[in-house]
Write a protein that binds this DNA or RNA. Structure first.
Lengths: 210, 210
DNA sequence: TCCGCTGCTGAACGCATGTTCAGTAATATA
DNA sequence: TATATTACTGAACATGCGTTCAGCAGCGGA
């Protein structure tokens, strides 16, 4: 698995192969021996570097959270304007598409973190919820949105729509015939989402422009 | 675990305890010995009745799908009118709340089915997507909604909002302080959802009634 | 009454797992 | 060059897993 011209440390190789396999099948379904084989090392070396399989899992968690932070940092730093642009509402999916190479195992790993129920997942959702709340507040302050009578629910609702394509990627892809995390899929999803956010989906009073 | 006045067959007890434990921790994290202990029988009896652990998992899958079918049957049968009532849009969560006793392991098991990626999950999502599409079509035919330019995405979007409270129940509950599958939580969520479906959340033109 | 069948158990088997450990090669330190 | 430290391995270990199997109790039909 490890290419000949690979000069990363064995530690990094093990960590990356674990990330890939964990994202693919879930940590419980992957054995230390499989990770070691994928990294081209002995099982004992995995333990030597990470203490235990649980230690490796935590190291991968930390690594992915750091990547996620870097992603969000670029998003809320140099491109902060986008956060207050309704046309960039699909921020999470777009961030993933922009900052991660195609085929990256990170989205699938983030999905598992969110769904596994551990402390890392709670932390991740907390950050996302605060981000969503802040975004809504910003939109309201900019006069671009209304807070509604229950802003917390509204922020959670927005976040869920962002997360849906991550959590249900396969199912949505099968139903629509397009991977919702591809460029085309994101565009399709965002277009519809913006229309609904803009004016809802119930029947307009007759005479309204479409 | 099995109460003294319990006259269900051991087979049913095993199946129900497996359902509960599978929903709680996931099938891979539950051992045959734990299921047997919870049901008050020997591990060998589990195999005797279901052939293998995998057989038991499939039996539980089938059982839950049957419960789900019965739920939807009542929903689209005697109360079909509700499907075309926008006020009943939170149909999945409400159905769960209405037809399942509080604390039932079924919602958590459905969640696992949807997320596990097996054939049963694909089947389940397919049914839900068809239901959502049909509901949207019905609403449009009744003049209560507009199909949008991409009805498939719109139906998937509606479905995702229904599923969000199921998939992210714990996180949403922690963020909002209310279990979104409780009566109060559903009401809170549905209220906000209906407002957004009704008129969106972007800033209204000045002069519009709130 | 005997028979066969189903429900059920305790003990055991084979296997895969995470982890340990003694030991070797390589690299840095002195 | 000598030494200490690190990177790494192969073999082994204990444990817990799903599963098997011989046999026991109870019960309805011949």
């Amino acid at each position: 698995m490890r290419s000949a011209a690979d000069d990363r440390t064995a530690r990094a190789v093990i960590r990356d192969e674990a990330l890939r396999l964990f994202a693919e099948r879930g940590p419980d379904a992957v054995t230390v021996r499989q990770i070691a084989a994928a990294a081209g090392v002995s099982p004992a070396l995995v333990v030597h570097h990470f203490g235990s399989k649980e230690g490796l899992r935590q190291a991968v968690d930390q690594h992915v959270l750091a990547l996620f932070d870097a992603m969000l940092g670029e998003l809320t730093g140099g491109r902060a304007r986008d956060l207050y642009d309704p046309a960039a509402s699909g921020s999470l999916a777009e961030a993933i598409l922009t900052y991660l190479p195609p085929g990256s195992p990170v989205p699938a790993y983030l999905r598992r973190m969110l769904l596994a129920g551990g402390g890392a997942g709670r932390e991740l959702f907390g950050r996302l919820f605060r981000l969503s709340s802040g975004m809504l507040t910003g939109l309201v302050a900019a006069g671009l949105a209304v807070p509604g009578q229950d802003p917390a629910v509204r922020a959670a609702f927005l976040l869920c729509n962002d997360l849906a394509v991550l959590l249900l990627r396969e199912h949505i892809g099968a139903a629509l015939g397009t991977d919702p995390l591809s460029g085309e899929g994101i565009a399709r999803w965002a277009r519809e989402m913006l229309v609904i956010y803009g004016s809802g989906l119930l029947a307009s009073p007759p005479g309204d422009p479409p």
